[in-house]
């Protein structure tokens, strides 16, 4: 900024253009344009006269998606499943991550690094690998799940095959895979708390439990916000694990159908439904609105309010 003012003479800043142009072009063409063009497409439908052409139909695609006898229940189902999928992550993944991070912050650094590295390992694996690993572990033919649960006196069941349990099982597998990320973020935040603050509380006679809830937790609230919004965006965008384990039809009986798999099926067609890019774009439009709402709520509400806690 000072450069131009101080510079010997003002010439056309070619170098600024050179620095910015390549990234600007790639980002605009391959990210910004597709996102907006996709939203635009969701307001179009193939012309019944000449199916090659697409005509503007307003919000008709959205209306059809949400209210038609055929797709209405699918959208509703996917939405409900997605909310539950998110709830599983918020209620299981993030508390476990917080617990692990708190414990890790208390052990010697070397030992902690070993635990941390190992617990994070599943996170670096692809959904495909995680999906297949758990498919074979839960497969009754191999009987691993039966053996392990037998240790605590429980019986295994074909969880992925039953509509009541498939989504919960899938959610827990996803938690198993991703708990490492919130754990790391929480750990970094906890380590960042000045030792003096905690020591002062201890001296005043606070128990570990008290120190955690009254000192540490309020101080890491900004991280809780970041973790929540990351979980939200990730979950409402999820596709790979369901596709790998249950296929595009997200069985049994659509019980594991998420917005991501619904998007894929609507876009590319399945069974007797022909592919429909414009309807697919409308599903993506719904996902866009949901994710955007989450992000805006986070930015305006949560983050702004949490600023005051920062050091």
């Amino acid at each position: 900024m000072r450069v131009l003012a101080r510079g010997p003479r003002r010439k056309f800043p070619t170098h600024i253009i050179v620095f910015l142009a390549p990234a600007f072009l790639i980002y605009t063409v391959f990210m910004v344009y597709p996102l907006f063009d996709s939203l635009r497409l969701s307001l179009f439908a193939p012309d019944p006269e000449s199916p090659q052409e697409e005509t503007f139909v307003g919000f008709q695609n959205y209306q059809t998606l949400l209210t038609s006898e055929f797709s209405g229940p699918r959208v509703q189902g996917a939405l409900q499943n997605n909310v539950r999928f998110f709830a599983i992550h918020m209620l299981v993944q993030n508390p476990i991550a917080l617990l692990l991070a708190t414990l890790l912050a208390g052990v010697a650094r070397r030992t902690g690094a070993i635990y941390r590295t190992l617990i994070f390992t599943p996170t670096v694996l692809s959904f495909v690998l995680v999906g297949f690993i758990w498919s074979i572990i839960l497969n009754p033919i191999w009987g691993i799940a039966d053996d392990v649960l037998g240790l605590v006196g429980l019986d295994a069941a074909p969880w992925m095959g039953l509509p009541e349990s498939a989504l919960n099982t899938l959610g827990l597998i996803s938690v198993w895979q991703f708990v490492g990320i919130p754990m790391m973020l929480f750990l970094v935040a906890i380590i960042g708390i000045p030792e003096e603050v905690i020591e002062a509380a201890r001296v005043d006679g606070a128990t570990s439990w008290g120190v955690f809830w009254r000192i540490k937790f309020p101080l890491i609230l900004p991280t809780v916000g970041v973790v929540s919004v990351l979980t939200f965006v990730g979950n409402f965008n999820a596709f790979d694990l369901v596709y790998t384990m249950q296929g595009a039809l997200a069985g049994p009986n659509f019980s594991t159908d998420l917005l991501g798999t619904l998007f894929y099926r609507t876009f590319f067609g399945f069974q007797l439904t022909p592919p429909s890019p414009t309807m697919g774009a409308a599903v993506a439009g719904i996902m866009f609105m949901i994710i955007l709402t989450g992000v805006v709520v986070y930015l305006l509400g949560i983050q702004a309010r949490l600023r005051q806690y920062e050091f």
Partner: peptide
């Protein structure tokens, strides 16, 4: 924060 996947229809 916005996943690029949501633009897949147009991107394809």
């Amino acid at each position: 924060m916005i996943p690029i996947r949501l633009g897949t229809v147009s991107l394809l």
